[in-house]
Simulated assay, not measured.
Amino acid sequence: MDDLTGLTAAEVAKRQAQGQSNRQVNESHRTYREIFLENLFTFINGVFAFISVILLGLGRPGDVIAIVLVVFLNAIISIVQEIRAKRQLDAISVLTRPRVKVRRDRHNQVIDPAEVVVGDIVLLEPGDQVVADGTVVGSGSIHVDESLLTGESDLIPKQAGDRLYSGSFCVRGAAAYVAEQVGSASTAQQLTAAAKTHHRKLTPLQQEINLIIRVILALAIFLWLLVLLSLLVRLTTLPMSVQTAAVVAGLVPVGLYLTITLTYALGAIRISRADVLVQQVNAIESLSSIDILCLDKTGTLTANTLELHSIHLLAHAPANTQQQLATLAASVSAPNRTVTALCEALGGTPAPYAAKFPFLQLISGVPRHGMRAALIF
């Protein structure tokens, strides 16, 4: 890969000025202002505000204070939960933001992934992450793990002309690729943006409560009109009419609305202790309706790391086999995750070697499934 020239410093500066860098927008789509407005100006809060005006006109400020407390307590619970979810979503990123090696002016440079621009030649070795979408160039070949993107743990071979997607990892080999889609145009960023997309939907219980409140409100308005008509035709006195109107206002179930909100909040708090992100408190109701929970295989649910559990030697293995294995692992110049796990567990010392050969050359002719079995130490 030494024959690759890469971009010049002037070309890099020009493309950075044109906004063609790999910088990511980490904030979620919703702003704090939108969260406040969506939780304060709702249909239910509008109904309670209307009732509060009626009660103020009837000289019942005590009832108004109770309604206002319910409305603001409900809004505060929802706002706090959604702000917490927003901050966690802002931190979500498929990419782990490691340092990357690029080829510029015929020299290798180690830079931050945010500094990669369109057209950069990015170099990959085992353990490196693809930070931008692009195409493999040069004579190198690699095997990549795309499980973060596709859910499939099979290693995918890549060579010159093949497509690479950000969020995947190089597991074997060495190659270079040209960064073509960076920043928000990359696959990893599009997946992150999809995770941050917000959709406000009412649960069946909330829809039923809204319907009940609409019906009760319509009934209350009808009764208020009857009270006003009775007052106008002098069938009732003013104090009696005011008292009747206040009783009618109490028909709207303010306490029921608060009870539902508190139940949602308590459920969100309990489930958050298990490191579960709840974007909206009403998601608890949806979760309670689940009968069957379907999960993908564990390869995409666990950390992308390996840990050595135990070593089982063959019957006639030399006594120093474990020491030789430790030395072999420590001497590998481009370790993969298996070799890294061996080094961490065995702590071998690097030793000089006469030559090295790709593993595939040592087992040429072995079927694909045989190669996988041969990789087990």
Rank of each mutant, 00 (worst) to 15 (best):
Q24H: 07
G62F: 04
H29P: 06
N74M: 09
A49R: 05
S52Y: 00
A10L: 12
P61N: 02
E27S: 05
V68R: 08
P61E: 01
T8M: 09
L4W: 06
V25Y: 04
L37G: 05
G62S: 07
G57T: 09
S28N: 11
A75S: 13
R23E: 12
A75M: 13
I51L: 15
S52R: 03
H29V: 11
R33G: 14
F72M: 13
D2F: 02
I54Q: 02
E38W: 01
V70R: 01
F41R: 13
S28P: 10
S21H: 15
R15D: 02
M1N: 10
R60D: 15
I77K: 03
Q18R: 12
I77Y: 01
L40C: 06
V64R: 02
V12I: 15
G59V: 04
I35Q: 02
L7A: 02
L56T: 01
P61W: 03
G19D: 14
L7Y: 00
A10T: 12
R33E: 12
G19Y: 12
G19K: 03
N74A: 12
I65L: 14
A75L: 08
I79E: 00
I76M: 08
V12N: 10
H29S: 11
D2T: 07
G59K: 04
A49C: 09
A75R: 07
A66T: 04
L7D: 00
P61Y: 00
G6N: 04
D63W: 02
N22K: 09
L4T: 11
D63L: 13
N22A: 12
I65C: 05
V68P: 14
G19T: 08
L37R: 12
I51A: 03
E34G: 07
V53L: 15
I44N: 12
S28R: 03
E38N: 15
N45I: 06
S21W: 15
V53G: 01
F36P: 04
T5D: 11
F72G: 03
D3M: 10
L4D: 04
E11Y: 08
M1E: 06
G6R: 01
A66M: 10
V71W: 01
T5K: 12
L56C: 08
G6C: 11
E38A: 15
N22P: 11
K14I: 03
V64H: 01
D3L: 14
L58R: 03
V70T: 11
D3T: 13
E11W: 08
N45K: 09
F72C: 10
E11A: 15
N39T: 07
F48P: 07
N26G: 14
G59A: 09
R60Q: 14
H29G: 12
E27A: 09
G19Q: 05
L56W: 00
V25P: 01
G59N: 03
E27I: 04
V64E: 01
G57I: 11
R30V: 09
T8G: 14
A17D: 15
V53D: 00
A9R: 09
I51C: 10
N39Q: 15
V47A: 07
A13R: 13
A17N: 08
R60V: 09
I54H: 00
G19I: 07
L40N: 11
I76A: 07
L73I: 06
N26Y: 10
A49L: 14
D2H: 09
L7R: 00
Q24E: 04
A13M: 08
I35R: 06
T5W: 10
G6V: 07
S78G: 07
S28A: 15
S52M: 09
L69F: 13
R15C: 04
V70K: 01
G57M: 08
F50P: 02
